[in-house]
Nucleic acid binder design. Structure first.
Lengths: 191, 191
DNA sequence: GGGTCTGATGTCAGCGACTGACATCGGTCG
DNA sequence: CGACCGATGTCAGTCGCTGACATCAGACCC
């Protein structure tokens, strides 16, 4: 398919990650990324809608997985279904810790990237809210379960990438959701 | 102070709003905004960090008001203090409905602006979480009270700008928080 | 009143993100 | 072997945004 080497997209992503990590996001130009990947600036923009998106491509896939998982969950629509979905995704979706760690370091150093990250997580929460409602949970409860689930995921993810013991993401997720459930038990967010 | 007419900043904001509303955000160039305001492109960027920020300048002020309000609230740190803060801000901060409505229409039509809006609200939630913790609320409860408060505000704001009856924002806020409290009563989020 | 100082604005040059239009190459299929 | 198609290259251009420096209006001082 490609004109020369295959995997243009992943080569671009790798090149971008390397340069972002070494010189910072702002100090890296798209032309440099493309050159390192042996491609053209124009081609970069055919694979990624913008310079930031390199770090977030794939989040749509995660969102789809979560939505499908909640939609087909054996548990009733609620926090437990969301927790299950995240734990399942943890095993099939996420890249190795080192990559995630490096990626997070880059994001944490740049406001524009944080903006994009927050927006992506917001979309995930919105999508989860939608499925939960579709499965019969009423409106505010669905939103709360979704937002709380995403919040628990944020915590688990942050602990995962900064865990010196190298614990699995799934384990951090379980802990995080246990803490959340303990806190919210009396509210019964559809769980 | 100004070279010619005063109020350069508000003239720029007005010009931007008019053009964004009439032609859309992407179709409006900064040079056009500046020209309509009788100023230069360079001057625009001295008043606003970027083209999007025109629509969000002032959100820092809102955030400060909320934080101060919660910090000095007579109520215990929790949802009620947050609710009070929003209701007080509703009376002293927000522009007329027509302006807010027009602004929201522009934002809703553009993903980049939505990203910025979400990020701003996220910062507000983070700041509120911080005050609540400073006032002694424990960590997850503080975050939940802040996020829930912001969520209630979102709902109230959306209803306010789309309310044909022209109800006051403060009234929508009260209703929204009543609904939230009813839902969360058993959880006791510090309220 | 005139000189000076300061803050806001103008001017200019330039970088880099992003896009549209069109050419070109590699592989596929008939 | 030739038509076809999808991915890439090439080119030119727009626009957001910035740094450096000049300039102007008003405030302050004498």
């Amino acid at each position: 398919m490609g004109r020369w080497e295959p995997n243009a997209q992943s080569r671009l992503r790798q090149a971008a990650m390397d340069l972002y990590a070494e010189y910072g996001f702002d100090q890296t130009t798209v032309a440099e990324i493309a050159e390192r990947a042996g491609l053209t600036e124009r081609t970069f923009f055919r694979h990624f809608t913008d310079k930031r998106e390199v770090l977030f491509a794939g989040s749509e896939r995660l969102q789809e997985m979560l939505v499908e998982s909640v939609a087909g969950s054996s548990r009733p629509a609620g926090l437990d279904a969301v927790a299950d979905a995240f734990e399942r995704a943890a095993e099939h979706y996420f890249p190795p810790v080192e990559y995630s760690r490096q990626r997070q370091t880059v994001i944490d150093a740049n406001p524009a990237l944080q903006e994009r990250e927050i927006a992506k997580l917001h979309r995930v929460a919105a999508a989860l809210t939608e499925v939960l409602r579709a499965r019969g949970l009423d409106d505010p409860a669905a939103a709360l379960a979704a937002e709380a689930g995403v919040a628990a995921f944020k915590v688990a993810f942050a602990r995962w990438v900064s865990d010196p013991a190298g614990g699995a993401l799934a384990d951090h997720l379980r802990e995080s959701f246990i803490g959340l459930r303990a806190l919210l038990a009396p509210a019964r967010l559809g769980s």
